[in-house]
Amino acid sequence: MKAIIIDDERLARAELRRILAAHPEIEIAGEASNGDQALALVAQTLPDLLFLDVQMPGLTGFDVLERLEDIPQVIFTTAYDQYAIKAFEVNALDYLLKPIAPARLASALAKVRPATGSGRLERVFVRDGEHCWIVLLADIFLLESDGNYTRVHFNGHHPLIRRSLNALEAQLDPAVFFRANRQEILNLKWIDKVDLGVSGGLVATLKNGRTIEMSRRQSGKLREILSL
């Protein structure tokens, strides 16, 4: 498991490194002392896990996540921002309060899942005003184009992210995400049933009741995939 440590204070990084020595399964691929360095280091080392300080000069921890295309697993480290982190809806693995108790670190690491190594996008970071989410792609049932932005539908939320639907599509697993039409990509694992629509295309009903109409061309493809 490859991890990087992002914290503006050298002593804080050194201290975390010392506590991590008790966990040889965690290989520390590098350290960054600010957000820009962190972005470069992530691009260079492709870590499975980030230890991410929230308050840093320049980019904050949240700003760093917003600029990453694919979000590794994240453990936040902070002196006092636990309330900001708790406001995070889902899927930050955990947060550690500094000074970090070794037993607390061990319980956070127990939540780390082994890397899939699929090379596919697994999580995206979404920020909408005051709200931030680290969203597992598996929870996303629909992606909807909105100009150069994409509206992400999951768990009752539907914030916009600053990437076009086409740009996102290129990174998604085609075995899971299916282009329904020009505007929408749906998650095949969320399909409950498929019917024939009035205009001749297929209409998928998702497990949450939402219906999505396929374009004529994509209806044929969906038939193939679902072996209808």
Partner: peptide
């Protein structure tokens, strides 16, 4: 400031070794 308080304690924890 609590940020100062806890960050300082964390630095001192590191200094104990260094």
């Amino acid at each position: 400031n609590p940020h100062f308080l806890f960050n300082s304690l964390n630095s001192i924890r590191g200094l104990v070794v260094e």
